[in-house]
């Protein structure tokens, strides 16, 4: 099975404070390090497990500047076969639609059975690229997938995670696109031998012109107006009184906050 995995490099903000920069259009990035989007690691692991089972190839694709190669090399070190990076000023100017268009154009030039991506990006949180890309490639898609079973060479049986611990089980024909939920598997570490081999694996770079895309085709449909900090958290407010009084007040509070 030939699998394409979409990877995104994101600032690692899971454990850090985030602030808005002076343009109000971006976050302050000077003190942040960059890493692979968490959900994309699960998508990559899904691909590598399928490759181990069925053979075939895993191709990584990402949009961004040269720094993104760090993420691609990490994926290659874990066992992907080759990588593609799409780099152009025009890609940076647009929105999720722009990114999906660039990805679709590059992916359509490859032979593939399955396209995977993470279910959500930890930076913008759009959850948008995957199904958008599927629409552009005119293939069926399923979002927030946490189980993939190959039925035969033409079909997958998948579980999708819905709210409240409910799964939606469906069959989807190949070629297809899946966005993979976090926690679906345990992403592997790169071994040192893998790291060594990654250096020799192909990493191709394409710009908009090479993909036959121009500014008009890549124009975004939305734009960021501004970023700002959410309301500041209040300090602990102590509930006082006898155990009974405390319980009364606490019950009201819990009811309100739990939305009962």
């Amino acid at each position: 099975m030939d699998i394409i995995v979409c990877m995104k490099m994101v600032p690692d903000t899971s454990e850090t404070e985030v602030r808005v920069d002076s343009t109000n259009k971006d976050i302050l990035k000077v003190r942040l390090i960059y890493t692979t989007n968490e959900a994309d690691n699960y998508a990559l692991e899904t691909a590598l497990l399928l490759k181990e089972k069925l053979g075939g190839t895993v191709t990584l694709i990402s949009v961004g500047p040269q720094k993104v190669d760090e993420v691609l090399r990490m994926g290659l070190a874990k066992g992907a076969d080759r990588a593609i990076r799409l780099t152009d000023e025009l890609f940076d100017k647009g929105d999720a639609w722009t990114t999906a268009k660039a990805l679709a154009q590059a992916i359509s030039q490859n032979k593939y059975d399955l396209v995977l991506s993470g279910c959500i990006a930890s930076d913008d949180g759009y959850s948008q690229i995957g199904p958008t890309l599927a629409a552009l490639l005119k293939i069926p898609s399923a979002a927030y997938v946490n189980k993939v079973e190959v039925l035969d060479n033409t079909k997958l049986r998948i579980d999708r995670e819905l709210e409240g611990g409910i799964l939606e089980r469906k069959e989807i024909s190949l070629p297809a696109l899946l966005t993979i939920q976090t926690g679906t598997n345990t992403p592997r570490y790169a071994s040192i031998i893998g790291i060594k081999r990654a250096g020799a694996k192909p990493l191709d770079v394409f710009d908009a012109a090479k993909l036959n895309l121009d500014a008009q085709a890549l124009a975004g449909l939305t734009e960021l107006d501004k970023m700002y900090m959410p309301k500041v958290e209040s300090k602990a407010q102590f509930i006082q009184g006898s155990d009974d009084e405390i319980s009364d007040k606490l019950a009201t509070l819990v009811k309100e906050k739990a939305g009962l």
Binding site: I27, S122, D123, D124, G220, L224, D225, M227, Y228, M229
Partner: peptide, 20 residues
Amino acid sequence: MLARRSMYGGKINADIISKS
């Protein structure tokens, strides 16, 4: 339309505008 949403796991809010 102008929409408000969270980013960065809820650490930032953003206003996004649809161009049409």
